[in-house]
Design a protein around this nucleic acid. Structure first.
Lengths: 340, 340
DNA sequence: GGGTGCAACTATAGCGATTTAGTAAAACGG
DNA sequence: CCGTTTTACTAAATCGCTATAGTTGCACCC
C-alpha cells in the first residue's frame, strides 16, 4: 500500500534549509523573506506537490476555504427544479480555480436551516453562506447578523440595509412583466398557482396580480407546495369550473408542465382556449409541446455573482453595498396567446 | 456587534472543573471518566451549546467530517438532468443527523477530477468520495487506490475487486430490459441516441443493441454530448431519412423530450409511427405529452446507499464487499407502442 | 563609532481538539 | 496490612499552519 505521506511546510522548510515560518511567509506572499529565498521555497513546494492542509489553516483562524449552501426544499421537489443545479453550477464557476469549496446541505425547515448556520459558524466550517427564498420577517437574517457570518441573500426582503448583504431581485417587476403581458394580450381572468405563501416572492407576485384588478383583471391565487401533483390538482379544479380562467401562471416550470398535461387530458387546447406561463424557465420548458412562456432568469449568472459577492464580503466584511440582480426577461413561447 | 465567542472544550473543562482531556473522553464516549463526571460534562456542553470545531478534529487526524463529490459535466447539462439532484438528495438523506457534510465541485475533465481527488486527499479535506460514470480503463480508480482514499464507485467497471468499493449497476441488464421490450413490441429498426462513447454504460448499451441483430433487429448508435441540441439534431436526421427507425431510445430524459418535440414538429405521431424511450427517468418525463417510457431507477435510494456504503468504508476501510445496486425497472408510458 | 533602522530570518506560542504517558487515590486480594 | 491492579483523572505532546516577538547582521549617518 502506498503510504502517500502528506507533505507539510516543515518538510519544505527542511528541504530549503529555512524555518517553517519563512516557508509560510513565502507561500502566502507575505514580506519577511528575500525574493531569492521565496522563489526557492516556491519551487520546492511545487516540486514536492505541497498543498495546504485546510484544517490547519482553518484552525489557526484564517479561512475555512468553504462556503455553505443550505437548501430548504424537500428532496423530491429539489430534483425537479433546474433552478438549484443552475445556481450551483454558477456558484461553482465562480469558485473554480480559487481554492474554495462549496458545502451543500438539505434542510427541511427554517429552524433547521438556522441551526445549520449556527453549527457551521460554531465549528468554523464555512466562511460564508448563500441564502435563498427570503420570507416575511425572515428569522434567518438576524441570526446571521448576530453570528456575523458573511452571507449573501438572493431576493427581496424587508431588512434594513447592511448585513447580510443582498442581491436584490425585483420580484414585483418580474411579476409585472408577466402579468402585464397577459393583461395586454386581453386576459381578464388569470389564475396564479403559487408556492408556499410565506415566501416573499409569492406575496409580491400575488400583490401585483391583485393590483391588476383596477384594470379589470380578475386574479386568483392557489397556494401549493411546489409539487407537480399539487399543480395538477389545482389545474384540474380550475378547468372543471364553469367560469374558467383564460390564463394560468405557475411558480415554476415543472408545475407548468404538469398543468399543461392536465389541460391536454381535459381537452382544453393550449394556447387557443387557455394560456399557460411560468415564473421559472428551464431547458425543458422550451422543449415541451407547446413550449412554455416563461420568465427567463440567468440563474447560472446569478449563482456566479452571488459567489463572487460572497467572497468579496468574506475578504472585507465591512464594505457592504447591496447589489441589484440582473433583471429577468420574459420569454414568449407557444403556450400563450390572445384569449378567445 | 455580538462577539459570539465560540465555546471550546477548554471552556467546558473550566466550568466542570476538570481537564480538557477528560472532557474529550466524556464527549466521545470513551472510558476514562466516571459516569457521574461524564454526565456533568455532557450537561455543561449541552447548556453552553458547545459544538466540535471540525478543523481541529480534522487536524489531529481523525476525520474531516466531509465527503466529496466531483461531478464531471458541463454546467449546462448538469441543470438539465434530474439525476444529479436526485442523487445528491439521496446522499443528503443518508447524511442527515450524522455530523457529515458533502462537498461538491464541478470539474470539466477526468484529469481535473483526478487532480481534485489528489488535492482533497492531500489537504485532508474529505474522508471519502463518490465516483460516477465509470469508463473503460478508468484513470481515476488507480489513483484512488494509491491514495487509499475511501471511495464508492457507482456503475460497472473492469477493475478487479477491492478498492475502490463499488455499487454495481448492471447496465447490460438495464439495456436488455428496454431494448428487449421494444423488440418484443415488434420494432426491427431501433436508433440509440447515446452519450459520449467513453462511458462504460454507453458501451454496454451499444453492445446489447448490437446483440439484438441475431433476432433481426437493426440497431444504430449516434453519440452525442448529452445536450438537448445534439438530440434534436440527431432526431431530425433520423426522421429525414427514407428508412426511418420505428423506435428511438435516448440516454436521458431531456434528450428524449427534445427528440419528442422534433417528432411532433415534423408531423411524426408518437407512438403511432414512432416509439420514443429513455434510459433515464424524471418527474418531467412522466408529465410531458405523450409521457415517455423510461428506465426508472431509484436514484435517490442509490445516493443514500452510496453515502451509507461510503461511511461504512471510512469507518472500516478494510472490510470491502462490493454491492449490487437495486435493479432499475422499465416504466412503460405513452410514448411506446407496436410499430405500424 | 555607536546609535538607529531595516532586511531576513528564527524561535515560539498558539488554534481546539485528540491521545498517550503519568499519577494519585480507591479497590482488591490473600 | 501491604502490594498490586484498577479507576479516574491530569499533564503534555501532537496535528500543520500562522503570527508575533526576538535575533542577527549589515548599511546608514551625524
Amino acid at each position: 500500500m502506498n503510504k502517500a505521506k502528506r507533505v507539510t511546510i516543515t518538510d519544505i522548510a527542511r528541504l530549503a534549509g529555512v524555518s517553517p515560518g519563512a516557508v509560510s511567509f513565502a507561500l502566502n506572499g507575505r514580506p519577511g523573506v528575500s525574493a531569492q529565498t521565496r522563489q526557492r521555497i516556491l519551487d520546492i513546494a511545487e516540486e514536492s506537490q505541497w498543498l495546504p492542509n485546510s484544517a490547519a489553516r482553518a484552525l489557526v483562524g484564517s479561512h475555512a476555504g468553504v462556503i455553505g449552501f443550505a437548501v430548504n426544499r424537500s428532496a423530491g421537489t429539489l430534483g425537479a427544479e433546474a433552478f438549484f443545479t443552475d445556481l450551483i453550477a454558477g456558484v461553482q464557476s465562480a469558485l473554480a480555480g480559487k481554492r474554495i469549496a462549496m458545502q451543500m446541505v438539505l434542510v427541511s425547515s427554517v429552524e433547521e436551516e438556522v441551526a445549520t448556520y449556527r453549527r457551521w459558524h460554531s465549528a468554523k466550517q464555512v466562511d460564508g453562506v448563500i441564502v435563498i427564498d427570503p420570507r416575511d420577517d425572515d428569522p434567518r437574517l438576524p441570526v446571521l447578523r448576530d453570528l456575523a457570518l458573511p452571507a449573501v441573500v438572493l431576493g427581496s426582503h424587508a431588512s434594513p440595509e447592511g448585513h447580510p448583504a443582498t442581491i436584490w431581485l425585483d420580484d414585483s417587476q418580474v411579476a409585472h412583466s408577466l402579468f402585464d403581458y397577459l393583461g395586454a394580450l386581453g386576459h381578464r381572468s388569470i389564475a396564479y398557482v403559487a408556492g408556499p405563501a410565506e415566501f416573499q416572492h409569492t406575496r409580491l407576485r400575488t400583490e401585483v396580480l391583485a393590483g391588476l384588478g383596477e384594470r379589470g383583471v380578475r386574479g386568483e391565487v392557489i397556494a401549493t407546495d411546489f409539487s407537480p401533483a399539487a399543480a395538477s390538482t389545482a389545474m384540474r379544479r380550475l378547468l372543471s369550473r364553469l367560469e374558467r380562467p383564460t390564463a394560468v401562471v405557475f411558480d415554476n416550470d415543472v408545475m407548468a408542465i404538469a398543468g399543461l398535461r392536465v389541460a391536454q387530458e381535459m381537452g382544453v387546447p393550449v394556447p387557443k382556449d387557455l394560456s399557460v406561463a411560468s415564473f421559472d424557465d428551464s431547458v425543458v420548458a422550451g422543449l415541451v409541446h407547446p413550449s412554455i412562456t416563461c420568465i427567463t432568469r440567468d440563474t447560472f449568472g446569478l449563482g456566479a455573482e452571488a459567489a463572487k459577492f460572497l467572497l468579496e464580503q468574506i475578504d472585507a466584511p465591512d464594505v457592504l453595498a447591496d447589489r441589484i440582480g440582473a433583471m429577468p426577461q420574459l420569454t414568449v413561447r407557444e403556450s400563450t396567446a390572445v384569449p378567445r
